[in-house]
Design a protein around this nucleic acid. Structure first.
Lengths: 297, 297
DNA sequence: CCAATAGTGTCTCTGAGACAATATGCC
DNA sequence: GGCATATTGTCTCAGAGACACTATTGG
């Protein structure tokens, strides 16, 4: 291009003389919500173990929020994209590579980090339970997998002159050997005549750092939303799994029970049957399936 | 909190002595994909006008990309969130307030801005066609509404050892009185055994600045994806509209024709009938509807 | 044999697709 | 009157919900 701007410069000349202004710039962090699913221990040899949704948290070793639990994350560096930063964190903190990774949302509330101006570009990763061993005692890093419980507390719709406001309040409870963290997060959707705006507010927060309760709730909502029309749940499964196990994963994420027959029909095209079966259960063995790698449709 | 960190500082003391490191930080811009729908002029008095999807672009008056067309946008300032920056742009560039606004994605590819390190937090806004008059001749600002045409060029699925790669190529054509811009964007989904990753690549680009072709394609895909299971399309409609007009909006966004009877059943719960009718058409008048403000379900 | 789970059959209900039939203002 | 669109009716088909029935293991 040889167009000249108002100062008579070509684009090349312009770029050579360009100095980044000394406007204030934000730091940008990539924060990771890393989910996996694990089995509970079961006493009765005949009963199947139940599934639990778990998320990886790291205990902060310095101010601010010293001692509280935070999502794994770190600042994005000048030579990488936010996604590369997320991949890097995933490697460093969970020791995994090549997993399902999806950008969620960029949080930029003022004062969300008491130190300085920090935006958080959040990502969700889904890890196969077999891929990472839950190193519960890995206190070197003070990282732990917390069991996620996400419970509806209140649902309310209030009419206004020009529309309505809908608030949904959930309790997020995180449990691990390190104790229990609880937060209450409210999602508000304000609907006026020609507009809608949604937002999340942290009502109470016991043990979580920054606005990470909000980010986690956002991630859970995304996971719930996508599970019923994508194959996203399969990234949480090991190489081989039974359909009952897959159904349990759906149930623990959706927070409700599903009917066996209907579930099997619905996800049939997402999986591929193998010739392997479970063994040594106190009941009829179950066929093992794998993810359908040919892709959907 | 009175916990002390390694240096024996309380959180308050820590924050008082905290100096933001001199790590390099990115600039963050909020870029807006602002959609609206307009009528074409129709010669035959009896025929209904057709609908067109339009997007607001601004011709760059300085380097880089001098003379090319860019999405409205601007840098996020230290005292505002990305969403507030988006609202501000919306006011400044389109002169509207209280419209549908949704965060899309944060783009952070290296070198996406030749000047310096800039991330783009992109938003999609939907504007009622009556709300903004298409000031086609408003050259003061060199802003123009471009008609959007988004056409599938190629679709391909290639199997690899461990999965598959799926590429979908679309042509984005933007037309206005200022001429025609064309870009070809490819969406690639790489599916390996335990992971998936998607990305957009700009194959060719004639007339658009930065990576804005990519952002626009992302917005169109989001709009298409959400239109069939949300009431998002209604934010593109004026106060009163006919069901045929609404159907045309769905059709122009989805890029395919719909059956009238099925369409009406499907969106019945999203609208409210009024006692008004269209007049002076060369055919049977049509009942006018409005958006159902009571909300869904 | 029994506990516990695996796996299948089928009836119903709902919603979308397809197409037809009827209704109506305006030139 | 008749063009062009508006509006409704109904048949069919696919998929989800609901429930029941049969099949298999290890103890």
């Amino acid at each position: 291009m040889d167009l000249l701007d108002r100062d008579g410069l070509t684009e090349k000349q312009f770029l050579e003389q360009y100095r980044a202004g000394d406007y204030e710039r934000p730091s940008v962090a990539a924060d990771m919500v890393i989910f996996t699913v694990t089995d509970t221990d079961e006493d009765n040899y005949r009963k199947l173990p139940e599934k639990e949704l778990r998320v990886l948290l790291i205990q902060r070793g310095g101010h601010p929020f010293l001692g509280r639990w935070a999502l794994p994350g770190g600042f994005v560096r000048p030579n990488e994209t936010t996604e590369q930063a997320a991949q890097r964190e995933l490697c460093e903190e969970a020791g995994v590579d090549h997993v399902y990774l999806e950008q969620l949302y960029t949080f930029s509330d003022l004062g969300r980090d008491p130190r300085t101006w920090v935006m958080s570009c959040s990502y969700m990763a889904l890890i196969d339970s077999g891929q990472v061993q839950l190193k519960a005692g890995d206190d070197a890093d003070n990282a732990a997998w917390f069991k996620v419980s996400y419970r509806l507390l209140r649902e309310q719709k209030e009419l206004t002159e020009t529309g309505y406001v809908r608030t949904v309040r959930h309790e997020l409870k995180l449990t691990s050997g390190h104790g229990e963290l609880t937060a209450v997060v409210e999602r508000t959707v304000t609907n006026e005549e020609r507009s809608t705006a949604g937002s999340f507010t942290v009502i109470s927060n016991d043990g979580l750092a920054f606005d990470h309760a909000k980010i986690m709730v956002y991630a859970i909502e995304r996971l719930r939303g996508k599970i019923s029309y994508t194959d996203i749940a399969l990234y949480l499964m090991p190489e081989l799994f039974t359909l009952t196990e897959l159904q349990q994963v759906y149930e623990v994420i959706m927070g409700k029970e599903l009917l066996k027959a209907a579930f099997r029909r619905k996800i049939a095209h997402l999986v591929e049957e193998t010739d392997h079966y479970t063994e040594n259960a106190g009941h009829r063995p179950s066929r093992l399936y794998r993810k359908n790698q040919e892709g959907l449709q």
